[in-house]
Computed example of a mutant assay.
Amino acid sequence: MGRAPAAASPVSGGAGAALGGVPQAGAAPSAALLAGWGRFRQDFLRPEGRVVDTGNQNVSHSEGQGWAMFCAERAADRASFELAWGWTRRWLTRPQDRLAAWRYIPDQGDSVPDRNNATDGDLFIAAALLLAGRRWQQPGFTEAGAAIARDILRLLLRQVAGSTLLLPAQHGFETADSVTVNPSYYAFPILGVLARAVPDPAWLALAGDGLQLLRRARFGRWGLPPDWLSVARADGALSLPGRWPPRFSYDAVRVPLYLCWAGLADEPAALATARFWSDPAHRQWPAWVDLATDRIGPYAATPGLRGLAGYVLEQLGQVPPTRPAASFAPDDYYSSVLRLLTLTALSEKA
């Protein structure tokens, strides 16, 4: 599949469906989630509350802090939640708004040299705070989460060719001709948490247009969503930006996870990834595929990605039930994140 066509008119009925799968406030965690969170906490959450990316020189990201805060709340682990939130608030605060700086680099004079944000981190931090405020009856958490949600609406949404888009960050993703988006940032259950706490029609537009975007943003032999996507301002035409490798890989694998979590397993992007992962021509589950050439990555998917893929296939009834292990051997940070998010999605349906 080559360059995608311009957008059709959004289907209004899809907007509400795209906000499905919202995590239940105060839900009791499953045993599998508790075990998985315990291992993640042991391996990646430092005593001061910093989540370390062991595969990337032990830096920390706002997304990692957000994922940890969210999973700590889902595991009803208030002590770890407050540790991660306290560190995030201390080190990643931006003076001009309530969004978080995207990266912390240890062992250097200025540990946060770039104060640009990462929108997926802001989404998960906000949702974690909102859920924590309800679980533990803490208005301060709720107020902080709502303030972040309002700044997401204020600073990170753009109107392009009649559609509402979500910027990956406040700066660096817009040109005169196009806007670049990251399809994996459309975490529909998380958008639902924010929409319930801070009611605004913009959430519905963002979710509905995001679902339409994912229906169109499919490339290569298998029709897969890309890690990064360029949207033309003039007509909404989609293409693969040259700034990144044109791949379905570490970012885009979260697209089918969020769709299935939201109860949207029959969406084209989820069906396409299931076909790709179950293709009998693969000698192993590949870590990535080049969407311009259909070249398969030379190494196998990580355990976390295999667990995520098994969950997606299970939701479509294509394989016998496959569940990611809760107790697992040491793994790197991102693979462990994927496994933990998959356990969270499973826990919501338990």
Rank of each mutant, 00 (worst) to 15 (best):
D122P: 12
F124Q: 11
A128F: 11
L129I: 05
L130V: 05
L131K: 06
A132T: 02
G133Y: 05
R134T: 09
R134V: 13
R135M: 03
R135W: 04
W136S: 13
Q137D: 12
Q138N: 14
Q138T: 13
G140H: 09
F141R: 03
F141G: 04
G145S: 07
G145C: 00
A146Y: 13
A146D: 01
I148R: 12
A149G: 08
R150F: 05
D151M: 04
D151I: 04
L153G: 10
L155M: 13
R158V: 12
R158Q: 12
R158C: 14
V160Q: 04
V160D: 09
G162E: 10
G162D: 11
S163F: 10
T164Q: 10
P168I: 06
A169V: 01
H171K: 15
H171G: 15
H171R: 15
G172Y: 00
E174Y: 07
E174A: 14
T175K: 01
T175S: 11
A176D: 15
A176H: 10
D177W: 14
D177Y: 14
D177S: 15
S178P: 14
S178R: 14
V179D: 06
V179C: 09
V179F: 06
V181F: 03
N182F: 02
S184E: 02
Y185E: 00
Y185M: 02
A187L: 06
F188H: 09
F188C: 00
F188K: 00
P189H: 06
P189F: 10
P189G: 00
I190C: 02
I190E: 09
L191E: 08
L191R: 11
L191F: 07
L191P: 03
L194A: 02
L194W: 14
R196A: 15
R196E: 05
A197F: 04
P201L: 00
P201V: 04
L204K: 10
A205N: 15
A205T: 13
L206W: 07
A207R: 11
A207V: 08
G208N: 03
G208V: 00
Q212N: 14
L213S: 00
L213Y: 10
L213D: 10
L214N: 05
L214D: 03
A217M: 04
A217N: 01
F219A: 10
R221V: 12
G223S: 02
P225C: 01
S230W: 09
